[in-house]
């Protein structure tokens, strides 16, 4: 894709961002034992915004997004998702998790259930939808990720790229307001990376609020409204993708980009 096309795409996409705040992190701190993994993180994500988080391993980027749907517990600061404050209240946590979809590096599909059952489980058991309606929605999303013919197979029979697309469809079936991606392509072959990224770009075009932890810089340039660079638990630099890649401010960012690009 040429740079001009890139620009055009992004300007179209950007119009979807509204002023409504979806995620609000305020002075979030977290420790694993003595290890200070998140240090005073402040982050505001608006509705429709697409954010790419990058940084060296161990910098806390996965932990950051896992805190947003409370797979990890933060110890200090506040996290507000879709107007609900994350605290010890289990009801709030369960509610936020239904609104926040998440895709993992290791897919985490349920191997004992067929693809279709993987997709309908949440809608039927959590959203209490009738089975027929859930199946219909599931097939629609399977078509969107281009593998409707795999509906009756089991996850173990699919390739990595197909599994990851099923995982994305599974999250979408819950009709989430926010999607989190935790290195969705890191476990995949180059050929499969592309098919997954294509699905994610399509998803971005629908105006979904997304936070993506990834090292795919081409992807970041295409769809991100903001790129965040993290190192040792800090947000070191935060900027629009063009400025971020062409003119990084911080020494650490420059070093990282020179290694990865």
């Amino acid at each position: 894709m040429s740079d001009t096309q890139n620009q055009n795409n992004r300007s179209q996409l950007k119009s979807a961002i509204s002023s409504e705040v979806m995620i609000d992190l305020n002075k979030v701190n977290k420790w694993y034992g003595d290890f200070h993994v998140l240090k005073d993180i402040d982050l505001i994500v608006h509705k429709g915004e697409r954010i790419v988080v990058c940084g060296p391993s161990g910098s806390g980027k996965s932990t950051l997004i896992r805190c947003i749907n409370h797979l990890e517990e933060h110890q200090e600061g506040t996290i507000v998702v879709d107007g609900i404050t994350l605290d010890k209240n289990l009801k709030n946590i369960d509610h936020i998790r239904t609104e926040v979809g998440m895709v993992f590096q290791s897919f985490n599909l349920f191997p004992h259930l067929s693809i279709l059952e993987n997709l309908t489980l949440g809608p039927v058991w959590v959203r209490k939808k009738p089975k027929a309606e859930a199946v219909e929605t599931a097939m629609m999303y399977l078509e969107r990720v281009k593998i409707p013919e795999q509906a009756d197979k089991f996850p173990g029979q699919l390739s990595g790229g197909q599994q990851q697309r099923v995982a994305i469809a599974r999250s979408l079936c819950m009709n989430p307001k926010i999607m989190l991606f935790d290195e969705p392509t890191s476990a995949l072959d180059p050929e499969m990376i592309k098919e997954v990224l294509d699905v994610m770009v399509e998803l971005a075009e629908t105006g979904m609020t997304m936070i993506v932890v990834t090292h795919e810089m081409g992807f970041a340039k295409t769809i991100a409204d903001r790129v965040i660079f993290m190192d040792e638990g800090d947000i070191v630099e935060e900027n629009e993708p063009n400025a971020f890649f062409d003119n990084p401010q911080h020494e650490r960012t420059k070093l990282f980009l020179s290694q990865i690009l």
Binding site: N69, L71, D94, R97, T98, V100, G101, M102, F104, N108, L109, F110, L121, G122, W125, V126, R127, A167, R170, S171, C173, M174
Partner: peptide
Amino acid sequence: EGAHTIGL
């Protein structure tokens, strides 16, 4: 974790 993220 996968189950939690679909709200179970």
